[in-house]
Amino acid sequence: MVRFENVGMRYGDEADVLRDITFHLEPGSYHFLTGPSGAGKTSLLRLMYLAHRPSHGSVSIFNHDVTTTPREELPSLRRRIGVVFQNFQLLDHLSTLDNVALPLRIAGARRETIQEHVAELLTWVGLGEHLDARPRTLSDGEKQRVAIARAVINRPSLLLADEPTGSVDQEQGSRILRLFEELNKIGTTVVLATHDRTIIERYQHPVLRIEQGTLSVRWDITKGKK
């Protein structure tokens, strides 16, 4: 599903933010990605959601070596990846419904299908009353839920979430994590970046720990350190 081999990454001419990263995620797996702020979690996720190419090493997603994949082929890979961005990345001029509808519209889904699915999902995440609301009128927690709804609306094969429960209360957080668990059960590979140790300990999924740009610890909580 996802394979990193000796991957390094840098922005422009600056120093490497990721160094010698090697790991492999099986299809249908669920991993937590953790580490201190600035360690490189978001950069690692950016490589996984194809916002950046590695400076060296190779990254393979869905058995495509994205280091060499022509950029024309990247959109079809991206459509199979759902991303919950840390800063939500909602489009302020679009309504809640239109924000969530984006992946379906881009994929060419029918208008009626979009209306039906999006409204249903937004109701499920507790935003059924806010379909026409613009993101700037929503709280951070509500924006977070919109971002999550947009990430999962087209049932991605790979779901990447950067601190998805950081802005929501405990109850909403639990609902979101349950949604991720459900998606994982039906085959979605999940990578969830979080600082929250209670979540990591409660759900008992393998952990990728990154420190100073290096994947220092690969720890399976159920089996101890590897």
């Binding site: 916002a51 959109p75 079809s76 991206r78 459509r79 991303v83 990345q89 881009i106 994929a107 947009r150």
Partner: peptide, 16 residues
């Protein structure tokens, strides 16, 4: 540019 980046990351092709 920020809107375009989001559209790209969600899977929009250049033609879209």
């Amino acid at each position: 540019r920020d809107v375009i980046e989001v559209l790209h990351l969600i899977g929009a092709r250049d033609t879209y």
